[in-house]
């Protein structure tokens, strides 16, 4: 099955832990870290790494432009 495989990198210090990325992810990849950044926000991270398709929905809705998206064709 040809499918995109993706990954996201989250700028931990920019993240405000709003969870909008987590809610927007159709593949339920993202969760909030139990650790907090220097401002005390529980930042987002990839919990289910293998489910990411690189669709970038999370990044489009992130109000703080924290998310960089990578995608490869996987066949």
């Amino acid at each position: 099955m040809a499918k995109n495989r993706g990954a996201v990198v989250i700028d931990i210090e920019r993240c405000k832990g709003c969870q909008l990325c987590k809610e927007a992810c159709p593949s339920k990849v993202l969760s909030m870290n139990i650790e907090a950044n220097s401002k005390g926000y529980h930042y987002a991270y990839m919990e289910v790494t293998e489910a990411c398709t690189g669709c970038a929905s999370c990044a489009y809705v992130c109000p703080d432009a924290c998310i960089t998206v990578y995608r490869v064709k996987n066949d």
Partner: peptide, 12 residues
Amino acid sequence: EIIKPENRIYGK
């Protein structure tokens, strides 16, 4: 293997 500059499709 995925997180490489040539695979970057969106960011700030």
